[in-house]
Amino acid sequence: MPCRRLNALAALEDGSTMRAQTIFMSPATSMAAAIVLPPLLYVFYTSVSGPTGWLTSYSEIVTSGLFARTLSTTLVVAISSSIVSLFLAYIVALHLARQPGRRRAVLIVLVLLPFWTSVLVKCFAFTIILGRDGIINSTLGWIFNTKIELPLLFNRIGLLIGMTNFLVPLIVLPVLASLLAIDGAIYRAASIMGARPARIFWTVTVPMSLPGVFAGLLSAFVLALGAFVVPALLGSSQDQMLSSLVDFYNRQVLDWPKAAAISVMLFCMAVGSAAPLALWRRHKV
């Protein structure tokens, strides 16, 4: 055993990180696999073995208008909320990266506070802010001295606001990590060479923060794909996403093969969107 451990450390020091990764990751990975894989396989089995024959639930779902509509809502909401979140999170991360250490720590807690709050609580808070008589509408009404009822709740706008609020912290952290990893000397070199701030931003900051951007974007997108609570509480009935369909087939009509088939497709979408990133990262490293 000690010999093995030394090997692992040596591998790390050698820089042959691949092998060290395998050794250090294997306990966590095997435990996760033991817990997650059997039920996952069972879900997969349920999805392919419908009561009326193999793969019938897939063919019935793919041809149903309900699924097509929900899938397009899911993709549109997941992509647009991830992009809006990235835009907002990048600004926050840039600001955080420029703060001195202690101040940054305080500000990071402010980013994490909503992240730690239950999504259910946040959604109910949003109904108070966005509602017809909510804080925004009543404030605007007071300023313009007339009754203002902007439709901010139970529609796509409310859903996107809620989703963005939910996703921003997930992007801030990896982007901040990437930004902090940039060597300050590169900025100094760029400005000595005469580059203006805008040019430094586009040729140094952005390219060097890309790993964090992609990692954040990916985790935001994957989480957004499976959103359930936010669309249920802030969106309209037309804004419901695939998870709501899984719930419907699972609980309301007890059609488990279809619920499982949609879950498997969601899973494949998540894995499918992660794969290119993993390949790109390996290529880079």
Partner: peptide, 15 residues
């Protein structure tokens, strides 16, 4: 009749 009605209702409500 729940199953058929529930499916139709869900389609209708989400459309």
């Amino acid at each position: 009749n729940m199953e058929g009605a529930a499916r139709r209702f869900k389609e209708w409500i989400m459309a």
